[in-house]
Design a binder for these strands. Structure first.
Length: 804
DNA sequence: AGCACGCCGACT
DNA sequence: GTCGGCGTGCTC
């Protein structure tokens, strides 16, 4: 095989294809698809992925591969195919798809270095800069630019005395430690020892150590063990008694933690009934998708654990996805406790190096199970036996940048490839998944009871309009306040949720709770401070901000929104004795801060945990007996057709946090629209009825799961350019698609300007459009030059979850 | 992305 | 007459 087809590391459409390179003789038969290489490309060097090796090339002037970066492929055959599929199904570049499947440590780091031209020596250089380049020293070009002698350097480059070299480096490397072992036999060591002079005590101790111990030992440990310094070891190395070698080690983020071994728990009747079909599917090595709908606390995790156990027994591997925010120590504990060192953990809290090490453990088959966030779906296992996605409804499973994939779809792709079951678990499945389960595309497994028959908490809905009428203008209803105070007195804990999303956007009447929504879309209008207008981000409808409530004529109509900080201040006012932990983007941005705060709350160092959605998941504290939702509505009125669904999900998840142990739990939901079905049904824990109602609305308004969506967002520094491009695209799509497809917009994005760029979007609703992908690709192709040269960007999101 | 090639204005 | 502006197009 003489040639290799390589996808180079350039994210532009012109280079989104393979380039042929000659394989140097020494690597023929060694270079395989899926390996990373460094290749010359134009005047530079780039990293690339070999996707094919072949005997012939149609290209005349092929260059040769410069470097081989991997001894074995980093992308196996399956992942290469998956990469192709990702490119096709998300319309991203091939290189983007490949990189998304690998830890970022494997990405290239490009540097330009300055060095003396190979034919010259440093005496040729200007005296001012000679010392910089003595002994073949290299200088980073970026640093050189800042040097006071840069003008001299420039001249030397022109004169050809200095040259610029492009170097491709790996972002993070394997960590190594120095290890010492004996190379002389024990007899020789003994002989050498006896010949040492009396005062060479340390050398003697070291030799003695190696006479008594066979195994190599890390240098650091040896020094500790025999109480000596490096110099004595070095002497013995020089004398050829010992040898120092670099050995690769893993960075282990859980090194210091101890995991209590746990054993399978007896399953309830319901659990047994639910696990049977999964085990049957495993037995038959058959690909099935299971939707496991189980109320909070119904023991889904135990089912996962026992199914995984079967998989491991068969010598196969398992992938478990959990949402990033619930990848807490508590969760990790459950898997590590059951499966010990067979588990790799992948989440964003790890450093690049730590992620790389976990990835390598998976790649080498040293672990059999990975628990991780979205990207763990690309774990390079060879023989997957099961894929589990917990909290299936979580939006974090969809990547919001290219490639815009949904982990659920990738899971199903891999499940098919490996002929293995995929289990989607949730107490509040997405309508899409539940609808598929009802149609029989997925198999539905239902768990209706909590294990140990603990009751679901009682949920009280408080009408905040009533509170206002009573003259209570604080954020806390009388009921919530009393209950909070009561918890403080009893030494119990409370969790308070605030929906930060939807901040200051929707407009609501504080008297009657009326929310102004679009007459065409059944979605709340968004307030635009700039021109005092209310706009719909779906169809473009707009109207002036009314001075009075259109329903009850009250003048207390205003846009709505509040922040966690303000709540914290207010708690301090009304409950000064309460110790509060606030969790939001501000307090959790530092690495490990999230865990630290939760642990602190677990140790009862605070009475109230206050936060946004991020605390809704996976919390399980003994003494939490009260959960308060400050404003259930903020999310309800987001300009998003999934607003009701998200509200229902959040309220249900939140309710699940209270009273998980012996103490019974209470939930207080504060709202201005207590009659809304998503709030009412969350109170009654009635998913089935919610599903029915919501499906009806989706059908009526042509939304998923009845229709598919595509969101095209165009952005540019100039409003007119962004708008006109969006208009062109809209027209083009109208021509290309059937008249059954609806093309809405362009309208300005819910966030009309980001980073001084104006944003417009078009939405396409369709059921079946054979030429859709081709047409979208045509758009990207048509605008490719403009996207390179000017700052036009067009992003295409297939099946979007976020409509911003 | 970076770099070369190429075709029109202000300069020694 | 040339230097250099950045529009256009290519990179195996």
């Amino acid at each position: 095989m003489r040639y290799a087809s390589v996808i180079v590391d350039l994210k532009v459409s012109q280079t989104d294809r393979s380039f042929d390179y000659e394989i140097p003789h020494e690597w023929r038969g060694i270079i395989k698809p899926g390996m990373r290489v460094v290749v010359p490309f134009g005047s530079r060097k780039l990293q690339g992925f070999v996707v094919e090796v072949k005997d012939e090339s149609a290209v005349k002037k092929v260059k040769a591969i410069d470097e081989l970066l991997d001894p074995t492929p980093v992308l196996n055959e399956e992942l290469l195919k998956l990469g192709e599929w990702l490119t096709e199904s998300t319309l991203c570049f091939k290189i983007t798809a490949f990189q998304a499947m690998l830890p970022s440590a494997l990405k290239a780091n490009y540097q330009k270095e300055l060095l003396i031209h190979k034919d010259r020596s440093y005496e040729h250089l200007h005296p001012d800069i000679q010392t910089l380049f003595q002994k073949n020293k290299k200088l980073d070009l970026n640093k050189a630019c800042k040097s006071p002698y840069f003008h001299v350097i420039q001249k030397e480059i022109e004169a050809g005395n200095l040259e610029v070299q492009y170097v491709v480096k790996q972002k993070t490397n394997k960590r190594t430690i120095k290890q010492i072992k004996a190379i002389a036999s024990k007899k020789e060591l003994q002989a050498f020892l006896s010949k040492l002079p009396k005062q060479a005590n340390k050398q003697k101790r070291i030799l003695q150590f190696f006479i008594e111990n066979d195994d190599p030992i890390p240098l650091k440990k040896l020094l500790e063990e025999v109480q000596c310094t490096v110099s004595s070891v070095k002497t013995l190395i020089d004398k050829k008694m010992l040898l120092e070698e670099e050995v690769e080690v893993y960075r282990d983020p859980y090194e210091k933690e101890h995991f209590e071994k746990t054993n399978p728990l007896p399953l309830t009747n319901e659990q047994t009934k639910a696990i049977q079909p999964i085990l049957a599917s495993l037995e038959k090595e058959q690909h099935d998708v299971f939707l496991m709908y189980g109320v909070t606390g119904s023991g889904k995790t135990e089912i996962y654990l026992q199914a995984i156990e079967e998989v491991l027994k068969k010598g196969k591997e398992a992938i478990v996805l959990v949402p990033e925010i619930s990848l807490t120590p508590q969760m990790v504990q459950r898997f590590k406790g059951r499966f010990g060192s067979k588990v790799a953990v992948l989440h964003s809290g790890l450093s690049t190096g730590e992620k790389y090490d976990e990835w390598r453990k998976i790649d080498r088959g040293e672990v059999k199970l990975v628990v991780g966030a979205r990207s763990a779906i690309f774990a390079p296992f060879q023989n997957i036996g099961i894929i589990i996605i917990d909290e299936e409804h979580e939006t974090s499973y969809k990547q919001e940048e290219n490639p815009r994939y949904h982990a659920r779809e990738v899971a199903i792709y891999r499940g098919k490839y490996h002929s293995c079951p995929v289990v989607l678990g949730s107490a509040t499945p997405t309508l899409e998944s539940y609808a598929r389960a009802q149609k029989g595309v997925y198999n539905l497994l239902t768990l209706t009871e909590r294990v140990n028959k603990r009751p679901l908490p009682t949920v009280e809905i408080v009408d905040m309009r009533e509170e206002l009428r009573k003259g209570n203008r604080t954020m806390f209803s009388e009921s919530l306040y009393t209950k909070l105070k009561n918890r403080l007195e009893n030494g119990e804990q409370a969790v308070l949720f605030l929906n930060k999303r939807g901040y200051s956007s929707f407009v609501m009447c504080r008297d009657c709770g009326f929310v102004i929504s679009c007459p065409h879309c059944d979605i709340s209008l968004t307030y635009h401070r700039f021109d005092e207008k209310l706009k719909c981000h779906y169809c473009g409808y707009e109207e002036m901000m009314p001075p009075h409530c259109p329903d009850c004529k009250s003048k207390y109509i205003r846009f709505f929104g509040t922040g966690t900080q303000r709540v914290e201040e207010e708690i301090a006012k009304v409950l000064p004795e309460a110790r509060v932990i606030r969790m939001d983007n501000d307090t959790t941005s530092r690495k490990g801060a999230h865990e630290k705060l939760l642990k602190s709350f677990g140790r009862k160092e605070a009475d109230i945990l206050l936060g946004t959605q991020m605390i809704a998941k996976g919390l399980d504290f003994q003494d939490v007996t009260l959960v308060g939702v400050l404003t259930a509505d903020t999310m309800l009125h987001l300009p998003d057709f999934r607003a009701s669904e998200k509200t229902f999900q959040l309220l249900t998840q939140v309710s699940g946090r209270a009273g998980r142990h012996t103490l019974p739990g209470e939930v207080v939901i504060q709202t201005y629209v207590p009659e809304h079905y998503s709030i009412q049904l969350a109170q009654r824990h009635d998913y089935a009825l919610f599903f029915q109602k919501e499906m009806y609305i989706r059908k009526l308004h042509h939304y998923p799961p009845y229709y598919y969506l595509v969101l095209i967002t165009v952005s540019h520094q100039e409003v007119t350019k962004a708008l006109s491009t969006a208009e062109h695209i809209s027209l083009f799509m109208k021509k290309r698609l059937s008249d059954k497809a609806q093309i809405l917009g362009p309208v300005s994005s819910p966030i009309p300007r980001i980073n001084d760029r104006y944003r417009y979007q078009c939405m396409i609703k369709y059921k079946r459009e054979s030429s859709l992908y081709e047409s979208l690709k045509a758009i990207l192709k048509h605008y490719q030059q403009e996207m390179n040269q000017t700052d036009l960007t067009i992003s295409i999101d297939l099946n979007p979850l976020m409509l911003m």
